[in-house]
């Protein structure tokens, strides 16, 4: 039985703590070609969309859950939204907790909406990263399509 509306509200255990470092922030800002001075130096803040890197860590729980029958290779990322309380910065130790917010399944596809809450290990909430994923299961018999 693949993912269904019955899974809405399901929350997974938080990811292992991730330590945000100045070096990783510099590397990420450089990949975006972004020379904003806030991302430079020994105590930088992270570019806002760096939150996606930590949120994606939590996606593993979704694809590892045998109840859902989801595979990353059959998934398209269709929507992304972030709401920040404050920027992530070097020295933050961050855990990501994923909750299934919505499921719309029909035939061999499902739109799955997830919310990943990023918080420090001390419990300070930093960001919510919400994503919509479109999953397609292979059709084994064309008549079923």
């Amino acid at each position: 039985m693949p993912i269904s509306e019955a899974h809405v509200g399901k929350t997974y255990p938080p990811t292992q703590p991730y330590l945000v470092t100045a070096g990783k922030i510099h590397e990420f800002a450089r990949a975006l070609g972004d020379e904003n001075p806030a991302y430079a130096g020994a105590e930088p803040v992270a570019p806002p969309t760096f939150a996606a890197v930590l949120a994606a860590d939590a996606w593993g729980a979704l694809f590892d859950d045998p109840e859902l029958d989801l595979a990353l290779s059959q998934t398209m990322h269709t929507n992304q939204k972030f709401a920040w309380r404050r920027p992530l910065r070097a020295g933050d130790e961050v855990v990501a907790t994923l909750t299934i917010d919505g499921v719309r399944a029909r035939a061999n596809t499902a739109f799955v909406t997830i919310a990943v809450l990023l918080a420090t290990t001390a419990g300070e909430e930093l960001c919510t990263a919400s994503s919509t994923l479109l999953h397609t299961w292979p059709v084994e018999n064309e008549e079923e399509a």
Partner: peptide, 18 residues
């Protein structure tokens, strides 16, 4: 937005459809 605002900490939310 961040080039214009200067300080990236000013960004509260951001969403897109791909």
């Amino acid at each position: 937005v961040t080039d214009w605002a200067g300080d990236p900490a000013k960004v509260r939310s951001y969403g897109v459809r791909f």
